[in-house]
């Protein structure tokens, strides 16, 4: 991860300016419907400058919208890691279990959130649980796979120490296996959180629930294109921040 210095910040400005220029050129030439950066700001600043304002169910500041989406992601992500971590542990520690369930997991893994969501709606008949179901199912896999490889990568020495000291199963798990696997688990969590954030937008678009993705889709239908751009930027910034935060936790754990 890049260090946050003034010099690095100056470098990263180049990319941001280039993107802005590209956007401006596109809006001025071939993409006439695309609002220019200036127009986008002009039309969206009320959402950005009053981020916690609530004017109607689907007309709220981006702070509120992001908050709704984040709570949904948090719930789905929590569900994903609560199921994914023990599942990864089992897959990593038992060969039989691995042979029984790995093929199924490999088939489930590449299924897109757009495919899960309708199934969720069929099962739960409500958009909220269907969204959580979709987020959990889609974002679980990196946690499962990383936890599994973490358990597999545990040095034989640690296992032998546990055996020689005759540690109970519980002690072996809490004092040896889990600490040895934690760095891997958190790499999994970080990737899972990233996926969960990707999935949320699709979920909200399809269910039309308030949140950053729901708002984006509504503004597209209302032909207010500048708000789409604002939503896209918000999604990017929030996703980036989440990844950074998890990255900090991850590096902390790696030192140990």
């Amino acid at each position: 991860m890049m260090k946050l210095t003034l010099r690095n910040f100056a470098y990263s400005l180049v990319g941001i300016i280039a993107l802005g220029a590209l956007w401006w050129i596109a809006s001025a030439t071939f993409a006439r419907d695309l609002p220019s950066p200036g127009k986008t700001w002009e039309e969206s600043k009320v959402y950005v400058l009053q981020p916690l304002e609530k004017r109607g169910e689907m007309d709220q500041g981006i702070g509120r919208m992001a908050y709704y989406s984040l709570t949904r992601v948090a719930k789905g992500f929590l569900l994903a890691i609560l199921i994914g971590t023990p599942l990864g542990f089992l897959l990593g520690s038992s060969n039989t279990f691995f042979r029984m369930f790995d093929p199924t997991i490999q088939v489930l893994r590449p299924i897109s959130p757009l495919a899960w969501l309708p199934l969720g709606l069929v099962i739960f008949r409500q958009s909220e649980p269907a969204a959580l179901f979709t987020i959990a199912l889609c974002s679980m896999w990196p946690t499962v796979i990383n936890t599994m490889s973490g358990v597999r990568a545990m040095p034989e020495d640690y296992r032998n120490v546990a055996k020689v000291l005759q540690l109970s199963r519980w002690k072996t798990l809490t004092k040896v296996s889990i600490p040895a696997t934690i760095p891997y688990i958190f790499t999994g969590y970080r990737l899972s959180l990233g996926l969960a954030w990707l999935v949320i937008v699709a979920c909200e678009m399809l269910t039309g629930t308030p949140g950053i993705g729901g708002f984006l889709w509504q503004e597209y239908n209302s032909l207010i294109y500048s708000h789409i751009l604002m939503c896209i930027l918000t999604i990017g910034v929030v996703g980036f921040t989440l990844d950074r935060l998890m990255g900090i936790v991850e590096t902390r754990l790696r030192v140990v």
Binding site: D157, Y158, N160, V161, V164, K175, V176, P179, A180, V256
Partner: peptide, 11 residues
Amino acid sequence: LVFQSPSLLPW
């Protein structure tokens, strides 16, 4: 048993 490598738990 003392192993060839110290085999201490690093955490």
